[in-house]
Amino acid sequence: MHSRERTAWAWLVCLLIAPTIYFAGLNHSDWVPGNEELSRLAALSMPLIVMAFVALGVRAFNIIKARQTGQELLDERDQLIEMKSTSVSYHVLMAGMIVVGMMMPFSATRWELVDTSFFFIVLAEVVHSCITIYAYRKGIHA
């Protein structure tokens, strides 16, 4: 398995677990009275910390693997896959930012803006990982 595909799998699993727990917990959370801002910030930082550790772990694993088997070359197919997945996920992110930045400010609270922004960032990353995995598994044609 190519290191980029392995990274995409790890990232996809992480994205489907950590933020999902955060979003599921939003409806059931009793924020500390008087300290709601701080407790919400703490709750939001949890999935971000998990995602940061997963990203570091995958990076470290890839470096160790590259030392054992030699550095993997990034060829034209890898670049095409990266270009396509980045392009689609960019459009997903832009659509989300239009919703958050142009439509929601008139009706939503600030934490709804934060959560929706976070949701669209995660969604864009999920789309990126899915396209990368699909392209490596099923193929890609320019």
Binding site: H2, E72, L73, D75, E76, R77, D78, Y136, G139
Partner: peptide, 22 residues
Amino acid sequence: VGVTRQTIAAIEAGKYSPSLEC
């Protein structure tokens, strides 16, 4: 050729159309 083994495998399997140069 200057590509990875995986890319050659993908070309052989018809999962990737190489560039003209490749």
